[in-house]
Amino acid sequence: MKYLLTTIGMCIALAIGAQDYNVAHNGGKLILEGVDNAKITSYDGSEVVFSAKIERDEKKSERAKGLKPINSLGLDDNSGIGLSVKKDGDNLKVTQIGECMCDDDEGYTIKLPKSMGVDYSHSTYDSDRLMIEGVTKEIVVSTNYTNVKLKDVTGPMSVKTVYGDIEATFSSVEQNSSVSLNSVYGFVDAAIPAASKAKLSLKTPYGQIYTDFDIDVASTNGMRELSDKKISGTINSGGVDFMIKSGYENIYLRKK
């Protein structure tokens, strides 16, 4: 039985080749453009590691033998896994070339040094999820259809998506710059430690706001503005700007 499993395993590994591509880089940002279904985690290391399970279409590769896919910007796949990876000043710029070579269920897995921030943008239907874990430098996300999941993050960050939902779990709320989470048609769910200091601005014109925090609502000339669509106030006597907006769905701000 064991042998059988190993054989099957080996066959699968041969059919779907897992491949890595490493680049030494420190500081700056990892700029990702149109990279499908990315899972980004930070780790103690000095290299950015891209990995994907490459699914090769045999017929296509037969015809394309000896040729490289390129994109309209003239960038080519210099990583061997369908990504153009280039230094761009202090930053590392990564663009996906053409369709994802990766297995749809897996997408690209990217590990980056703790000193790096992330700037991710994606505008097509081809990517339905993005996961960012443990990144404590600045995170900037701009997508149209991608759901965004953030785990063990601290801010500063600015996330916006048109159709995607945003789910974020903060390990703490960094006080040096702002946090903003915006979705037009998706919900936003943020969990932050109960003792977090923040100046909140929560807006949802057509949704509902849910929270278990005690929010001190701001007042002008002794009058407090109370609305279930728009709340500005502070928690734990105020701190960094923390903005959540959803156009048509609910907002959830919970204690972690």
């Binding site: 600045e138 900037v140 500063p156 600015s158 702002s178 903003s180 700007d241």
Partner: peptide, 11 residues
């Protein structure tokens, strides 16, 4: 340089 820094300025 940072996006969140500029957003803070807007705030």
């Amino acid at each position: 340089e940072s996006v969140t820094g500029r957003i803070e300025a807007v705030q």
